[in-house]
Amino acid sequence: MGIIEILYQQIGIKDVMDIAIVSIILYQILRIVQGTRALQVMLGLVLVLGLYGVSLYYKLYSLNWILTHFFDYFVIIFIILFQDQLRSALANVGTGRKVFGIFNNKSEYLEIEEVVEAAGVLSREQIGALIVFERRHGLENIVGTGTRLGAEIHSDLIYSLFQPSSPLHDGAILIQDGKIAAAGCFLPLSNNIEIDRHLGTRHRAALGISEISDAIVVTVSEETGRINLCIDGTFYSCGNENQLRQYLKHVWSNEKLDEKLKPIKLKD
């Protein structure tokens, strides 16, 4: 009797479902931590587990006692270490909205043009800006940090909000469900110690919100006027308005990018 026949007799439908569910969970965990500092933490935990095996094999009682108590609280330690990644994973499971749905289907291109036009003017005048697009992960907590507007997306409004004389110019504006939901919003700063030290608070905030959510962030540098798109913790430089337009249309409707532009790698 072959191995396949033995497995066929011993494994039932419930076993197959069990294996499939566990495999999917492990796969999603690996996808979440890929390319992040969480992967380094996971490798560290694997080394600790290996050390625990060594302590058992060679009967290193003191080390074994320490590691045994460490693993007694492993679930709590895991939640603390991977709280951002777990939040992202649960948001992926709990959302039912379209994967790339940023804009209303009837006016998506008009809204893109309004954002691109505003970013272009702000760039030429070297006025700093931070524009966040909510995607699948809800950002209502971010909306709550600013001033609620619920206004139509218009380049003149975006331009005026980021004027130095505006009381809301220091924060970010958040676009939600085809509306400017709020302005003057505070974003979490990135904790990544490996990012360029020359990046200011505005760019660190863009990285921070993109690391803990699937938001798309447009930044305009106050020092250089340079436009950047930030997705999944990565900046994509936009040399002009047309490149920003291409990136936004590519993310929203998967339109083909110019070969000269840096390809976008989305986690989902």
Rank of each mutant, 00 (worst) to 15 (best):
G2N: 15
G2W: 15
I3W: 15
E5G: 04
I6A: 13
I6R: 15
L7K: 15
L7R: 15
I13H: 09
I13W: 13
K14V: 14
K14F: 15
D18M: 12
D18Q: 11
I19A: 14
I19V: 14
A20H: 07
I25R: 08
Q28R: 14
I29S: 07
G35T: 12
G35H: 06
G35D: 12
T36I: 06
T36V: 08
Q40P: 00
Q40T: 13
L45E: 07
L51I: 11
Y52C: 04
S55Y: 04
Y57I: 08
Y57C: 03
N64A: 09
W65Q: 14
I66D: 04
F70V: 11
Y73V: 15
F74T: 05
I80C: 09
L81K: 04
L81T: 04
F82H: 11
F82V: 02
Q85S: 07
L86T: 01
L86I: 13
A91S: 09
N92T: 10
N92W: 06
G96T: 12
R97Y: 08
F100K: 02
F100I: 02
G101P: 00
F103P: 03
N104T: 10
N105V: 09
K106Q: 13
E108C: 10
Y109N: 11
L110Q: 07
E113I: 10
V115P: 00
A118F: 02
A119Y: 01
A119M: 01
S123N: 05
G128T: 04
I131D: 04
F133K: 00
L139V: 11
L149I: 02
H154T: 12
H154C: 05
S166N: 09
L174A: 02
Q176E: 06
D177Q: 06
G178S: 14
I180P: 01
A182I: 02
G184E: 02
C185I: 01
S190D: 05
D196I: 00
D196V: 00
R197S: 05
G200H: 01
T201N: 09
R202P: 00
H203S: 06
R204Y: 09
A205C: 05
I209S: 00
I212W: 05
A215W: 07
A215H: 04
I216L: 11
V217W: 01
V220N: 03
E223H: 06
G225N: 14
R226T: 13
R226Y: 13
F235E: 09
S237R: 13
G239P: 03
L248R: 06
L257W: 07
L257T: 03
D258R: 01
E259I: 08
E259G: 03
L261E: 05
L261G: 06
P263S: 10
K265Y: 10
D268W: 10
